[in-house]
């Protein structure tokens, strides 16, 4: 109980600090959403009239205070760029980004864990060399480059999908998954490479432990040793990494959504920042932060479930 209270306290403090940081960032960067909406043709009077209409004629500190007091009550304010409630924008975008992230994560886990085991199992063979080479390649290639490559090869040459078209899940679920597959793959590949590398190292480390020698001594086959004894312990070492991977998947989707033009949180966030939309940026940043902090919190619990020796709040 004490652990949860402490954890929640830290969560709230983190979120608050992040929102404060966003606020300061807005102070530093030049910002005039009204001018941005009206372009170069508007007169000063026109810009001023719009500022009043959008409520951005007030000092930024006032805007921050009204945003944060609203946020606590569940009112995220109105987007200055899109002129609609932030909550409405968020509700339509969140499922898209979460689906994309989830899909990428499933791909990472489906490919990363078996490949990591394979690399550990087939150590000192040509397999290891091949996997090592592929992981190095995977880690070095940026995800946006992969997306452009996929778009070119699978979209423009092979015509497996139409670049730039996005099917909403409300229209067709299979179409939705289809339009997220290649974006998810571009996010997944670099993260998979990281996971394989960690998984392999963790497995090899465990293989040197005393209990492995004991297991082998009992006459357990190499398969049993690897999959029952070693894997369980290796996973414990990898779970915190999965928390980090989820964070990377989310930040990766910010860039990938832009490249594939997927209407998720990332694309909205970039637009919010470039249009200096204060309520929208604040809410999105805080939302992403909450997700990441929660994921790490869940990772902590997962470790404890897998290995009860680790006590929560012990450290």
């Amino acid at each position: 109980m004490k652990y949860f209270l402490k954890k929640t306290g830290i969560l709230v403090l983190t979120i608050f600090l992040i929102s404060l940081l966003t606020f300061f960032a807005f102070h530093i960067i030049p910002s005039d959403p009204a001018r941005l909406i009206l372009g170069t043709n508007a007169s000063e009077a026109q810009v001023e009239a719009l500022r009043v209409q959008l409520g951005i004629d007030r000092p930024l500190s006032d805007q921050y205070i009204s945003w944060i007091t609203g946020f606590v009550r569940g009112d995220f304010g109105t987007s200055t760029k899109y002129r609609m409630p932030v909550a409405e924008l968020l509700a339509s975008r969140l499922p898209v980004t979460l689906s994309l992230g989830l899909m990428a994560l499933v791909l990472v886990l489906l490919a990363g864990i078996p490949l990591g085991i394979l690399a550990a199992r087939r150590r000192d063979t040509i397999w290891e060399q091949v996997i090592n080479f592929l992981t190095m390649l995977g880690i070095s290639v940026p995800n946006f480059f992969l997306s452009i490559l996929f778009m070119w090869v699978f979209g423009l040459i092979l015509h497996w999908f139409r670049p730039g078209t996005f099917v909403s899940y409300t229209r067709s679920l299979s179409g939705f998954i289809g339009s997220l597959f290649f974006p998810a793959l571009s996010i997944a590949i670099p993260q998979t490479a990281v996971l394989v590398k960690y998984m392999r190292t963790a497995m090899l480390e465990e293989l040197g432990q005393d209990y492995v020698r004991t297991a082998r001594g009992k006459g357990a086959s190499e398969t049993i040793v690897l999959h029952i004894h070693v894997l369980r312990n290796a996973i414990v070492a990898v779970v915190p990494l999965i928390g980090m991977i989820i964070a990377s998947v989310l930040s990766g989707s910010i860039i990938i959504e832009q490249v594939f033009s997927i209407p998720g949180i990332g694309k909205l966030l970039i637009s919010a920042v470039t249009s200096r939309d204060f309520p929208l940026t604040q809410t999105l940043v805080v939302y992403v932060a909450i997700i990441i902090v929660l994921v790490n919190f869940l990772a902590d619990i997962a470790i404890q479930v897998i290995d009860p020796r680790i006590r929560l709040g012990g450290s």
Binding site: L17, V273, L284, V285, A289
Partner: peptide, 19 residues
């Protein structure tokens, strides 16, 4: 974790898009 979350926020802020 705080740093990771902060980095996400900073990264988000430093990105720019086009029109």
């Amino acid at each position: 974790r705080i740093i990771a979350a902060l980095m996400t926020a900073v990264m988000a802020l430093s990105l720019a898009a086009c029109g």
